Simulated assay, not measured.
Amino acid sequence: MRPTAIIALDVPSRAEAERLLDRIGPSADYVKVGLQLFTAEGPDVVRAMTARGCRVFLDLKLHDIPATVAHAVTSAAGLGADLLTIHTSGGAAMMRAAAKARDAAGPSAPRLLGVTLLTSLTEREAAEAWGRDSVDAGAEVARLARLAEECGLDGVVSSVHEVTTVRGATSDGFRVLTPGIRLAGDVAGDQARVATPAEAARLGSDYIILGRSITAAADPAAAMARALAELNSLPVTA
Rank of each mutant, 00 (worst) to 15 (best):
S159G: 13
L177P: 00
D133V: 06
G168S: 07
G185E: 04
S108F: 05
V115D: 02
T122R: 04
R193T: 05
E162C: 00
E150N: 10
L177S: 00
D103L: 14
I208W: 01
T178F: 09
P110Y: 14
V176L: 13
K100H: 13
A201R: 07
V176K: 09
G152Q: 15
A126T: 08
D154P: 02
A72M: 12
T164Y: 01
R132G: 02
A105L: 05
V160S: 14
T165Q: 13
E140N: 00
E140I: 05
A93G: 08
D172P: 04
G131R: 04
G106N: 11
A109F: 12
S75Q: 10
E128M: 07
A81S: 06
D136I: 02
G90V: 04
A200Y: 09
T116P: 01
D136Y: 03
S108V: 14
T88A: 11
L118A: 03
V163P: 04
G131T: 11
T165V: 15
A169R: 04
T116F: 06
G138S: 11
F174Q: 06
L117C: 04
Y207G: 07
A81L: 08
L83S: 08
G180P: 03
V135R: 02
A198H: 07
G185H: 04
G180F: 10
S171Y: 07
G173Y: 01
L121W: 10
L144A: 08
T74H: 11
G78W: 05
H161Q: 15
A99Y: 06
A195L: 01
G173A: 03
T170S: 09
S159M: 08
H161A: 13
D133A: 14
R124I: 04
G78M: 01
A137F: 15
L144S: 05
D190L: 03
A148F: 05
V156G: 08
G80S: 04
P107D: 13
L118K: 06
R111P: 02
R146K: 15
R132V: 11
S159K: 01
D206F: 02
V141H: 06
S134P: 00
Y207L: 09
V187R: 15
I86F: 00
T116D: 08
I86T: 01
S171P: 11
A104R: 12
G138V: 05
L203T: 14
D172L: 08
T74Y: 07
A105Y: 11
T85P: 05
A97T: 02
R175T: 03
A77V: 12
D172W: 03
V157M: 02
R124V: 02
A76V: 12
